[in-house]
Amino acid sequence: MIVVTRLNDSQFAINPDLIERIHASPDTTLVMVDGAKFIVTESLSEIIEKIARFRAHVISLAYLTQDADYRPGIRSLEIVDGPHSIDEIIEPGSTVPTRPRRI
């Protein structure tokens, strides 16, 4: 989350991943993916800098994690119980049951 300031000097935190675009004419307006708009006192370049610092912080936390099973860049694979292919679900040569159509 990044902290931004409304025109009335109240601050709030916003998820920068949900910002669709930023306008700066003359006030800086954050347009969110859901269409919500927030007018803030920070400049366009300040908002971009806050977003860059936030993302750098998230990446640094990923590398500093103490999780013994976590290794950056390596994803562990696990075997999942249950049917793994359509052949294991449907017997060879059988047909898939269908519902009758309503006309």
Rank of each mutant, 00 (worst) to 15 (best):
Q11W: 04
S25M: 07
P26K: 05
R6S: 13
I47T: 13
I51V: 15
E42N: 07
D17K: 03
I2N: 03
I22T: 12
Q11P: 03
L44W: 11
I47L: 00
T29I: 12
T65N: 04
A36N: 14
A56N: 13
Q66F: 08
A62S: 15
D9S: 11
F12I: 11
E46M: 10
L7G: 04
I48E: 12
V40L: 00
T5A: 01
K37S: 11
L44V: 14
S25K: 06
A36Y: 12
Q66D: 15
I48Y: 06
P16Q: 11
A52F: 06
L18Q: 11
F38K: 00
V4T: 09
K37D: 09
Q66P: 08
A62E: 15
D69S: 10
V58P: 00
A52K: 10
S25V: 14
F38T: 09
V4D: 03
T65D: 07
F54A: 05
L18G: 09
M32N: 10
D67T: 14
A52G: 10
M32S: 11
I59L: 04
A13I: 13
N15Q: 05
S45H: 11
E42G: 07
L7E: 07
S43F: 08
I51D: 06
E49C: 07
E42Q: 12
S43T: 15
H57S: 13
T5L: 00
P72F: 06
I14N: 02
R6V: 13
Y63Q: 07
Y63T: 15
R53I: 14
S45C: 04
H23C: 02
H23D: 12
V40F: 02
A13K: 08
A56L: 07
H23A: 08
I59E: 10
T28D: 04
A68S: 12
P26W: 05
V31W: 02
T41S: 09
I39W: 01
I22P: 01
N15W: 04
L7F: 04
R6K: 12
D69I: 10
D17R: 02
A52L: 03
D17Y: 05
S60C: 07
A13M: 09
T5N: 02
A36R: 09
T65W: 01
L61P: 05
I19Y: 02
A36P: 03
S25N: 12
A13Y: 08
D17A: 07
I48N: 07
Y63V: 11
T28S: 04
E42L: 02
